[in-house]
């Protein structure tokens, strides 16, 4: 039973990683860049939702909506002013810029809200679901987190696979020139991608802070880097890959903490990444780039 309980907390942590990883993966799939500022968008989302709940005393759904709104605007603005001018630049320049944006956001947050951590309010209470005569307890938070992740994943898949805009996004990820010939405004599609990724970051922020309730300017870096790892692990650019990679990483991390060592858990997580990439360099579900003339 202890194992099942660890598995559920792993799934719950993994769900948060998966939602963040979706943002990395979608942006990579379409803009072909690694948005290292993604983790810091999460941090901003965490502060916004914190203020809405703690300072204004508003309910959690208002906090989520406010965080999504601010993060979407922030994400689109970052893309417009920091990345769009570099559309033709070498990818190294874009990467360095993304790291710059990341530091800018972290230090900005420190300036505005100081570096000391703020206590995130308890969002979903401490209620638990008891199963098997109380042998297995799962917190509501865990269940909500997993359900939200599944909901996000289903909505996103439907959007990408069934709508005209989704089809246009997939077209842009394959061939921007041909997409332009179809009349697709590639810049607009990239903006939409950043908007979706940043909105997801806001959702992840609330779920993450509900599990680890300390909000500080560097809050985004660790989940950010782990979710990036999850995206690579699952196959960067692939949406089901991000989902699978996130869940896998969360479970590995939690089980490692439970059975091997808390201190070594991150080392083991990254070691698994290295092994996966050695065996399958495109990640679990990554596409091989096939060229046919």
């Amino acid at each position: 039973m202890a194992f099942l309980s660890y598995l559920f907390s792993g799934l719950s942590l993994g769900s948060v990683y998966a939602i963040i990883a979706l943002g990395y993966s979608m942006v990579y799939g379409i803009a072909k860049m690694l948005n290292f500022a993604h983790g810091d968008v999460i941090m901003i989302g965490a502060y916004i939702s914190y203020f809405v709940m703690a300072s204004f005393g508003l309910p959690v759904y208002v906090a989520v909506i406010a965080a999504i709104a601010v993060c979407v605007i922030l994400g689109v603005t970052i893309e417009r002013f920091a990345y769009k001018p570099l559309r033709q630049a070498p990818s190294l320049a874009v990467l360095i810029t993304a790291i710059g944006v990341s530091y800018f956001l972290q230090n900005g947050a420190q300036l505005l809200w100081s570096s000391s951590a703020k206590m995130y309010p308890s969002v979903f209470g401490n209620g638990q679901l008891h199963l098997f005569d109380g042998q297995l307890s799962i917190s509501y938070l865990t269940i909500i987190t997993i359900l939200v992740c599944i909901f996000v994943m289903v909505c996103l898949s439907l959007f990408i696979n069934r709508t005209k805009t989704g089809s246009a996004m997939r077209a842009c990820s394959e061939d921007k020139g041909a997409a332009t010939l179809m009349g697709i405004n590639v810049n607009r599609i990239i903006s939409i991608t950043f908007a979706i990724g940043s909105g997801l970051a806001a959702i992840a922020a609330v779920l993450f802070c509900a599990q680890y309730p300390a909000v500080s300017p560097t809050l985004g870096s660790m989940p950010g880097i782990k979710a990036f790892t999850a995206a690579v692990f699952g196959g960067i650019g692939s949406i089901p890959g991000a989902f699978l990679g996130g869940l896998a990483l969360g479970i590995i991390e939690t089980l490692t903490k439970a059975y091997i060592s808390t201190q070594l858990s991150d080392a083991i997580v990254f070691a698994v990444l290295i092994v996966v990439l050695l065996i399958k360099p495109t990640g679990l579900l990554g596409k091989k780039i096939r060229e046919k003339v």
């Binding site: 005209k164 089809s167 246009a168 997939r170 077209a171 394959e174 061939d175 020139g177 041909a178 997409a179 179809m182 009349g183 697709i184 596409k287 096939r290 003339v293």
Partner: peptide, 20 residues
């Protein structure tokens, strides 16, 4: 070089042609 969208179906490709 045709540049069809290899990861999308024939029907999806044709519909993208009518995108505008």
């Amino acid at each position: 070089g045709r540049r069809v969208f290899a990861q999308q179906t024939v029907l999806e490709n044709l519909k993208l042609g009518a995108y505008s």
